[in-house]
């Protein structure tokens, strides 16, 4: 069974002004020239490989980091690799202001912790310790001690799939 509390340090993806990046699409996350890859270990090295300013993301990110992004994260293609690459890198999960529908379900199905927090702007800084608690449905930023409730709330089905360690483990 998966850990109900997921802790890690924040790795926000921001533009030159420091604002969280919106509309990061699946080609920026995992470019279509790598779509033939089926081996998770090979997916890791291409995460954000086509995102301007973050081409070297895989070298910069520490295992256990939360990918923190803006609105409409993961818009575009249904490619599962755009989720798997973060799992393969050992990321804690994704916290976004909002997530595109297909990406959201792909993340939920593979038990990658993911939460949507529309009011995220300015609330999280690089290196902040974040805790996603599936039991309480909250995200806590330990630095200022702020507790956030994701919107929409983390659904029952997400918790159920997460506990099982993925959709394919559901009986």
């Amino acid at each position: 069974m998966s850990q109900m509390r997921v802790t890690g340090s924040a790795f926000p993806l921001v533009d030159a002004s420091g604002a969280l990046l919106d509309n990061i699409d699946t080609d920026m996350i995992f470019h279509n020239r790598w779509l033939h890859i089926t081996e998770p270990s090979q997916m890791a090295q291409h995460a954000f490989g086509n995102l301007e300013g973050y081409e070297d993301f895989t070298a910069r990110v520490e295992p256990g980091s939360w990918v923190v992004v803006g609105r409409n994260f993961g818009a575009g293609s249904s490619r599962q690799q755009a989720v798997e690459c973060f799992k393969a890198l050992g990321c804690a999960g994704v916290i976004a202001r909002s997530v595109a529908p297909i990406y959201l379900r792909n993340a939920i199905n593979t038990a990658l912790p993911i939460a949507q927090m529309p009011d995220l702007a300015g609330a999280i800084e690089l290196g902040d310790e974040l805790v996603l608690d599936f039991a309480t449905g909250t995200v806590t930023n330990l630095r200022p001690g702020q507790v956030h409730v994701p919107t929409p709330a983390i659904s029952r089905v997400q918790v159920e799939i997460y506990r099982a360690g993925g959709l394919l483990n559901l009986q």
Binding site: S78, Q80, R105, N109, L168
Partner: peptide, 22 residues
């Protein structure tokens, strides 16, 4: 609905998928 590999694998086996009614 477009879906990822995991959803489709599950549907191959069960013929169904979960939906949060939009």
């Amino acid at each position: 609905q477009g879906m990822g590999d995991v959803d489709i694998a599950y549907a191959f086996r069960t013929g169904q998928v979960w939906f949060e009614v939009p």
